[in-house]
Design a protein around this nucleic acid. Structure first.
Lengths: 195, 195
DNA sequence: TGACGAAACGAACGATCGTGCTATTCTCCT
DNA sequence: AGGAGAATAGCACGATCGTTCGTTTCGTCA
């Protein structure tokens, strides 16, 4: 990897970490430069605009999320095991406070009322995520683990809700019961899909 | 109401509306002053600091939420009707894009990793909300509408999850099915609490 | 080793940020 | 009607914002 691409990765790593605390909109070229030991202009040259930086940070977080949550789940057997793996890795990503997945949630609420390329990208990402969840759930239907008339899109929304509540309780309230609550809710979802 | 208190209300009304789009952190004295037709310093004098402004905007939004969601629910008969009313008014607040409740959700993800008075207040508010939901649910238990061993705290977290997913789907994705999904999820929660 | 392109820097820009001051205008009570 | 005090405006400050430009350093290959 060339020198430029290397520092670029380092910037994005740090950018995801910072955005995880202050949000995508709270990212500033100056603090990001100071945090990576670069000059403002040196860092800026890698992206050309703040918006482009935000989009790149978002893409970096997305890649991290896919790598640590989606891909490991897809490696599991089709059906319920795969759904369970998806949930567990997602949960672990929140527990370990891996910025990747969390930044996604934060950026979604941050930009849901601010039109522009960042919002557009977030919409695409969110649709992709729902698509992925629904698809994974469908393997459970075709394997006979779940009812044939179960609605995969509904399951995707439900699971998203469970995870969003988990994030709130875990990160804002520091509630130690957050994970147990999420597990309970997830099991309720599964048993409803089975019966 | 005195002149000062009147413009103060007007500022906060507009502040909630603006924060609903750009977040609590995205609020700026300058744009808020321009939006209300005041001078920066004239507006600033009402609050003394930006943080104090944020806290007041938050309090304003909280009052709006209590007035349009919690209080109407408490006017209904104890038990399931009250829980249903809570859900319906909450849903309506999102559908009509009333900034009150939505700002609450947005601010929570915005400040969940930023220590300070705003975060502290948000934690208190969120705990109060969960407390209210759990309390309303408990009236359903004592009325015999719900199982005696149902966990009110778990229900509060579950309902919060349903609403969070609804907000995402409604505001970010503009998904017309969002409300139906939320209703399905809510009914599933209720029937699980009954059986 | 010399040269060339990529990468990083330093300085500066106009704009806006939050926040002080000091005036001026307005409200309200006697 | 007039005076006290609240409410608002005007102006300026240091800091930081995103961005541009010209220059210097670095990495790489002939």
């Amino acid at each position: 990897m060339s020198k430029g691409a290397l520092t670029r990765q380092a910037i994005l790593d740090h950018g995801v970490e910072v955005a995880y605390h202050v949000g995508l909109g709270g990212l500033s070229i100056g603090t990001l430069a100071a945090g990576t030991g670069m000059s403002k202009s040196g860092l800026f040259a890698h992206f050309g605009s703040k918006e482009s930086l935000q989009l790149d940070v978002l893409a970096h977080a997305r890649a991290e999320f896919v790598e640590t949550v989606i891909r490991p789940a897809l490696a599991k057997p089709r059906g319920e095991p795969r759904v369970r793996a998806l949930f567990e890795h997602w949960l672990a990503c929140g527990r370990a406070r891996l910025p990747g997945g969390c930044l996604f949630v934060k950026a979604a609420t941050e930009f849901d009322e601010q039109a522009g390329p960042v919002r557009d990208q977030l919409v695409r990402d969110h649709r992709d995520l729902y698509e992925s969840i629904a698809q994974i759930f469908r393997t459970g239907v075709s394997e006979g683990h779940f009812r044939a008339d179960a609605d995969p899109e509904q399951f995707a929304a439900d699971l998203d809700g469970v995870m969003l509540a988990y994030y709130h309780n875990n990160r804002l309230l520091d509630d130690p019961a957050a994970e147990t609550r999420a597990r309970n809710a997830f099991e309720a979802l599964l048993s409803a899909a089975r019966a």
